[in-house]
Design a protein around this nucleic acid. Sequence first.
DNA 1: TCTGGGGTCCTAGGACCC
DNA 2: TCTGGGGTCCTAGGACCC
Length: 392
Amino acid sequence: MERIIFHIDVNSAFLSWIAVKMVREGKPDLRLVPSVVSGDPEDRRSIITAASIPAKKLGIKTAQPVSMALRTCPSLVIVGGDWGWYKECSEGFISICRKYSPVLQQFSIDECFIDMSFRCYGQDPVEVATRLKDEIRTTLGFTVNVGVGSNKLLAKMASDFEKPDKVHTLWESEVQEKMWPLGVRDLLWVGKKTEARLTSYGIRTIGDLATIDITMLTRLVGRNAAIQLHEYANGRDDSPVETEVAEAKSYSAERTFSKDLTDPVDIDRALFNVACIVAHRIRRDHFRASTVSMFIKYTDFSVAQKQCQVPQPTDVTAMILNEARRMLHEVWDGVSPLRQVGLGVSKLTHENYEQMSLFEDPRMEYYREWDRQYDEKRALAEDARMLAYERK
DNA sequence: TCTGGGGTCCTAGGACCC
DNA sequence: TCTGGGGTCCTAGGACCC
């Protein structure tokens, strides 16, 4: 039996969600004017997180620097984000989708797949998809696109066709007509680099990619990628809709400085801050990490990174920070200005036992107490934010 | 114009073991 | 004394996604 998969994608999610909130407060609808969501517009390094359709029509794009967008459109309306509200909107739309099928995979905060193979039996999938999109719009106030296809890839490609508030199909029988004329960049997993490589060999459309000799493609992108791209370009994908939420495999945090830094004290302060954040997150989720990595970005955007294994899985801020500090001094010459510093942990376990070590740092008790206090303050801050949020 | 932040997966080379 | 080949782990770097 041919599968029926829906991909539901919120149109300009962060912008739509902020717009809904402002409309409820009696303010004008951001979706009707050139507007964007971004970080602090005063910071020269802020970039655009989401743009309205009128803004996109002016050439303003996601991930563009705000300063650049303002030059394009001086009257651009700029608003900040609201993670608490985003989360609420996301949960709202996911729970409506789940009513249509319990076989649901959340792909990101604003996208999900549902397997409708059984639920659509005897019904027109387009009618069902239209009902779903309309229900989200009328109950939650924002629009989505629904892509309908016989697998996840086709459904996702279809939801990316004309926006907003639309249902599109992409069945296997429609691949040649609807997908092959598109540029290779439109295919999932073909980014800037792969596009450049492919087009330099005259492979411009998804159709070119679908019909090219596989050995030729292997020489260009390697064996595994070649097989994958060839399958996708032909509209083939048998991956299931995964209902299990996968556990995190890594956590990281990074800080970009508003001005490039050379002062080791400033840089260490940033490293300290990201270490606190990352360590707090793994404690919150009951993980310990065996690998610590540290990375820096230079002014030319090149990145250097270093990682190491810790003797025992840890969730102690001081242990993580010490490794990161050591690696920073190994990798940074102490002179070159830095744009960014970051820290990550991976190889996570839920191991709970504490192996007694003769060489355990005698300050360990102090470190743990410090972390406990930190977590408590952080939890209080979260509560206060939630309360303030509920009062609105 | 001057580029955020948080993830996943892949590749390739070297070390080490059997 | 010198040899093949496979497997696993670690590290650094890169591509891609939202």
